[in-house]
């Protein structure tokens, strides 16, 4: 499903590699926490999977495709199989909830009929039925993140990448978001979530990959955030 082989990523501005000879494999349908302090390489890890960046050395494989050799015009096709969620939601402020979700389908040229059918479905799934006509600023943080998740999931991606999705939310709201991500995971979607939130990691008991200075220092199934917390 997802495979990194001896991946090193150097950024020109920095002497230390963001990722240093990282190798790992993530299977279809897995739920993986990517943990580590700021600057440990979590975001770089996710960026490489999206082919936002190319590795300096090593190979990245997603859905059986080697990203290193993938040409530029194939990148959109790759990204259609992946959903992204961020700490800061990244909603379009001047569009309603439904329009925000529909936007993701419109720009990849899905037919109107499909959009009309699918958007209410996914809004119901994330628990936002009845709020389709609201604007993002009329929603709470948790609700905004649900919109973002709906947008990421509406095209039924094979992989969902979440970069600290609960970073801006209180523990209770975060729990709701985690339940939602778990539900998405149960549909067969692989979920990779970068996080600092040890409560969540400890309570979920899923696979944990810990990065430290660009290297994988721990890879544990049913892991916890860290010893001694």
């Amino acid at each position: 499903m997802i495979e990194l082989q001896h991946v090193t990523k150097l950024y020109p501005a920095s002497a230390r590699p963001a990722l240093d000879d990282v190798s790992t494999e993530i299977d279809k349908g897995e739920f993986v926490f990517l943990i580590g302090s700021s600057g440990s390489g979590k975001s770089t890890f996710l960026r490489l999977l999206l082919k936002e960046d190319d590795p300096t050395r090593g190979t990245v494989v997603v859905n059986g495709k080697t990203l290193n050799t993938m040409s530029k015009w194939q990148v959109p096709k790759l990204r259609r199989t992946m959903g992204c969620v961020f700490q800061d939601f990244r909603l379009l402020r001047n569009r309603t909830v439904a329009e925000n979700v529909a936007f993701a389908l419109e720009v990849i040229n899905k037919p109107h009929r499909t959009i009309k059918r699918v958007v209410p479905e996914v809004l119901e799934m994330v628990g936002l039925e009845g709020k389709a006509a609201r604007l993002p600023h009329e929603l709470s943080g948790g609700e905004q993140q649900r919109v973002a998740i709906a947008r990421a999931f509406v095209n039924r991606p094979l992989v969902l990448l979440a970069d600290e999705p609960t970073g801006n939310l209180d523990p209770e709201t975060s729990e709701g978001i985690m339940l939602l991500l778990e539900r998405i995971n149960r549909t067969g979607t692989t979920v990779i979530m970068a996080t600092h939130d040890y409560h969540i990691v400890d309570s979920m008991r899923r696979r944990v990959i810990e990065l430290n200075g660009g290297q994988i220092t721990r890879d544990q199934s049913r892991g916890v955030y860290g010893v001694g917390r």
Partner: peptide, 17 residues
């Protein structure tokens, strides 16, 4: 940039963007 960033992430083609 907000719109185009999202378009890029959800896999809108270069031409579309």
């Amino acid at each position: 940039r907000n719109e185009t960033n999202i378009m890029r992430l959800v896999g809108a083609s270069r031409w579309y963007t």
